[in-house]
């Protein structure tokens, strides 16, 4: 009996109808937060003593990097839930999370490179964190490519979930090894580590941006999952009804 709510949670129809109410709110909250964070961060936060105005890119870079990693875990965990409890919904979440995470990883790499040019004088450094992010991007692309390559939907779901899980086990190992490799090869040429004592006037807009990004992420993930669900359940009655209702 206690499992009933759990299974209802896994029902695509229940999920679809429940979340349609949340979407506008999530969208609204993320727009407000992102707008506030952007205006505050770009317009009112003070200039950095060393980096000048170029540091302001961290208002995008840091949240994107945060979510790129968190997104991988979201993908892997929903994949694991799908493998264990055979839940269609969580597979859909996993499939939806992969491209979003890949885009976020790319954004964080790209903004990092743009920021690196004026700060370090070069777009790309084989720094531990950048390298790890690059490998994370490859992991995302691997999961996406695998799910595209397998023609049967259910098999693709399970296979990419398994790969995502394998990646999860590997992420800490990869991160540690890259970290170790970096300290071996480039003894302190560039101090990347941002000073931990970040000024509150910079920290608050950053925090707002991070929360805003989380909301945006949730909104994108939900929308994407809903689209996937509709496409998969197109033969069922509820999906037909939803489609008829929306037109």
């Amino acid at each position: 009996m206690a499992w009933q709510w759990f299974h209802r949670l896994g029902s695509p129809r229940w999920f679809y109808q429940k979340t349609s109410g949340w979407l506008p709110w999530l969208a609204l909250v993320s727009i407000v937060l992102l707008a506030a964070g952007t205006v505050w961060g770009l317009g009112f936060a003070p200039e950095d003593a060393k980096q000048g105005n170029s540091y302001r890119i961290i208002f995008i870079h840091v949240p994107a990097a945060f979510l790129a990693l968190a997104g991988y875990y979201i993908m892997a965990i929903s994949g694991a839930i799908g493998l264990i409890w055979k839940m269609k919904l969580s597979f859909a979440v996993m499939r939806a999370a992969a491209p979003i995470g890949a885009v976020l990883t790319f954004i964080s790499l790209f903004t990092g490179a743009v920021w690196g040019k004026p700060t370090w004088g070069t777009y790309w450094v084989w720094d531990a964190r950048i390298t790890s992010m690059l490998i994370l991007l490859f992991l995302y692309i691997g999961v996406m490519a695998l799910s595209q390559a397998v023609s049967r939907e259910q098999v693709a779901d399970k296979a990419s979930a398994l790969l995502a899980l394998v990646g999860t086990v590997n992420i800490p190992i990869i991160y540690k090894s890259v970290d170790w490799w970096f300290t071996l090869h480039q003894p302190a040429t560039i101090r990347l580590t941002e000073s931990s004592s970040i000024d509150p006037s910079m920290f608050y807009p950053l925090l707002i941006m991070i929360i805003g990004f989380y909301c945006l992420y949730a909104w994108t993930l939900l929308t994407h999952t809903r689209t996937l669900l509709l496409r998969r359940e197109i033969r069922t009655q509820w999906a037909q009804q939803e489609l008829a209702g929306e037109n």
Binding site: I135, F138, A145, A149, G167, K176, S177
Partner: peptide, 27 residues
Amino acid sequence: ALTVALRRPGLLLALIVMPLYVPVLIF
């Protein structure tokens, strides 16, 4: 094992496996 049922797994296999090889290569 993940790509065994695919007709042309070559590049996909590389994409999947390469990131996992990184720690071994480094050490």
